[in-house]
């Protein structure tokens, strides 16, 4: 058998993570479709909605799921189309760093409300 050792383990786990995070994000989308029309109009209503405890909790979970989901998806794309190891490694690292930064940035926006 010609198995690549470094490729072991992360196949099934990432497949599952991609599904779980997708379902969470879909549920968040439905939550917001229901919640946003109930909010008062303008800045105050929008801010009140987003600073509500439940919405803030859900938004944080959404942000984490989005970044994890994007990591798995974008990494798959690099693995499929970018063959030189060095370029692929750099792209993987940049993707990961960007997503960690985005997660922090987006969380800070909703958490300081």
């Amino acid at each position: 058998m010609n198995r690549i050792v470094v490729g072991a383990h992360y196949g099934l786990k990432d497949w599952l993570v991609q599904r779980v995070t997708a379902v969470v994000m879909a549920l968040y989308t439905l939550l917001m479709i229901v919640a946003v029309p109930t909010a008062a109009g303008g800045y105050d209503g929008w801010r009140a909605l987003m600073s509500h405890g439940l919405i803030r909790f859900a938004s944080f979970v959404f942000i984490v799921c989005l970044c994890y989901h994007a990591w798995v998806g974008v990494r798959d794309i690099w693995m499929d189309y970018v063959k030189p190891t060095a370029v692929r490694l750099i792209l993987h690292a940049l993707t990961l760093l960007a997503l960690v930064g985005y997660a922090g940035w987006a969380t800070q926006i909703i958490w300081r409300l």
Binding site: W46, R47, I109, L113
Partner: peptide, 9 residues
């Protein structure tokens, strides 16, 4: 994310 920030800051 920037648009989200503008909407809430």
């Amino acid at each position: 994310i920037w648009l989200l920030q503008l909407s809430l800051a």
